[in-house]
Write a protein that binds this DNA or RNA. Structure first.
Lengths: 227, 227
DNA sequence: CGCGACGTTTACAAAATTTTTACGCCTGAC
DNA sequence: GTCAGGCGTAAAAATTTTGTAAACGTCGCG
């Protein structure tokens, strides 16, 4: 029942320091010293939270973050050095949940770990069954049904898949390529016209107007869903 | 038949705002401006759902929540301010069903109210004996007999199994795979043509017409039975 | 054996969805 | 200004899924 935390950092002393502190609070701790090992451990043991250093030799933290975010919403807490403001912003854009600037205190680390895990537990409690709520939108993957302001929507299979994918990553811009790969499969990753057609159909069914809008276009890049 | 909702908040404008919106959607609305009035109204009128502000003078929301939970499982939706993370956790521990952070949009409020009421209706429908009543349909699992508008139906074994399964989950979309696994067994989970044939036979025996309908198709996904 | 009830399979028309195509609009580069 | 490229929309074409009828086979029973 203990929560599993994966620590990714190339500095051995820091890894041990964080690891000992977390283990002392009853968490199960895994460590990786580079990006590739991190991805392997992530797939193998499905941790509940990841603490990820950005600055690493080889596959760096941002790259690891991006790859994990393509397949999972596990909370990720990013570690940055004092002068890496730019990386911090990038990391949040890529879907990091929180960041800590080195050097940091143990108390602060533990507080953020607890906060991140609590958020997850809560969202699982409410929607962990495949039910997702984004503002006035509600999606039930088990029943393949969607509601908007309480009204049931009639969505086809592809329409639902696309909306659900966007909703799972609500607030973030998702690229054409990513959306196409996930909904239509890898061989369709360049067929942008499908997206245009389907986003249009979703907008119509969601009754979007100028003042009430969910689906936003990021020209030249992709789309984003917001509450 | 309208569902009754009790709004508890010390701020008069917010109470009126929420109240008007819910009333406009056809709910019956009651309001209380403090904890004591809330408890009195709760006992007096047995609402179907409670919207409860935490921060109130006098008996606060958490106290009200605790007392109501000692005697009832009515869904309770808690309102908190942006910076009351701690109260939110406490409220969930005490058995709140969901929370909304102020300020919130009307759409989101309505969506959550509908979701909470839907959950209740669904869990009510599941308990009980071997006899199931869904609108003008009655199924007796012990005798394996079914009636429709008082007329006994002549159903074969598989027909009864399928109808009973759909009825037990009335109002929900059930996937092809789920239905096939349950009625025919795991090795038949891809034989969708069985479903087509059997749904067709059930529709005929239930005398379905355009205006009187029980079995609905969710193309590309499965079927649903409704009253 | 012949009959009836039931489950299974097949065939084809109807419906719904997905894919493809066409066209108009807007924006930014030149 | 105009041209190219990305975008939104509508609608036709192609494909997939569904509804329905009917044929087939098996099993139990008189």
């Amino acid at each position: 029942m203990a929560e599993r935390i994966l620590i990714v950092d190339d500095e051995e002393p820091l890894r041990r320091f964080i690891g000992r502190n977390l283990a002392a609070r009853g968490y199960e701790v895994l460590t990786a010293q580079d990006g590739w090992e991190a991805l392997r451990l992530f797939e193998q043991s499905a941790p509940d939270l990841i603490i990820l250093d950005i600055l690493m030799p080889g596959l760096n933290g941002l790259e690891v973050l991006k790859r994990i975010r393509q397949v999972s919403l596990v909370p990720i807490l990013v570690l940055t050095a004092l002068d890496q403001e730019a990386d911090k912003i990038t990391a949040l854009d890529l879907g990091a949940d929180d960041y800590l600037t080195k050097p940091f205190g143990v108390g602060e680390l533990l507080a953020r770990v607890r906060a991140a895990l609590r958020r997850v537990r809560w969202s699982e409690g409410t929607g962990g069954t495949g039910i997702l709520r984004i503002g006035d939108l509600e999606l039930d993957a088990d029943q393949r049904r969607a509601w908007h302001r309480g009204e049931m929507l009639r969505l086809t299979g592809k329409e639902f898949d696309l909306l659900y994918l966007l909703a799972r990553h609500a607030g973030r811009n998702l690229s054409h390529r990513f959306l196409l790969q996930r909904v239509w499969g890898p061989e369709y990753q360049d067929e942008v016209e499908y997206l245009r057609v389907y986003i249009g159909r979703l907008r119509r069914k969601l009754g979007e107007t100028d003042d009430h809008r969910h689906l936003f276009t990021e020209p030249g890049f992709g789309y984003r869903l917001e509450a």
